[in-house]
């Protein structure tokens, strides 16, 4: 593992390995989003993808020693939760009408 990542010092190769694993995890979730077959299936896959990106941002913040990136991750987590709740209420309302 190289000592520098995009010109910045890398603190621990293990953190970078974790980021690689998270990036790989985006693939199967993407396949599920494309394949469906129903809307809720896609919503949980998208929710998991949002969590994965949150994890990536957290680790990026750890690697770059930047608390600002951690804040971005938390905001993204908040938005992901809100969108999941909105999707759920949309799906449920549609069945009632």
């Amino acid at each position: 593992m190289s000592e520098r990542l995009v010109g910045l010092p890398v603190s621990s190769p293990l953190l970078v390995l974790a980021m690689v694993l998270l990036a790989l995890a985006l693939l199967p979730a993407t396949v599920r989003v494309i394949r469906g077959p129903t809307v809720p299936d896609r919503v949980i896959a998208l929710d998991l993808m949002a969590s994965l990106v949150v994890g990536l941002l957290l680790l990026l913040g750890a690697v770059l020693r930047s608390l600002a990136i951690v804040d971005i991750a938390l905001v993204l987590a908040l938005i992901a939760f809100l969108s999941t709740v909105a999707f759920a209420s949309l799906v449920e309302r549609r069945t009632r009408e």
């Binding site: 979730a29 998991l48 994965l52």
Partner: peptide, 20 residues
């Protein structure tokens, strides 16, 4: 801490494979 991060990432990878 690196090992904890890798374990967490592995769990998320498994979750993603599980979803598929």
């Amino acid at each position: 801490t690196g090992l904890v991060a890798v374990a967490g990432a592995a769990f998320m990878l498994i979750a993603s494979v599980g979803i598929l």
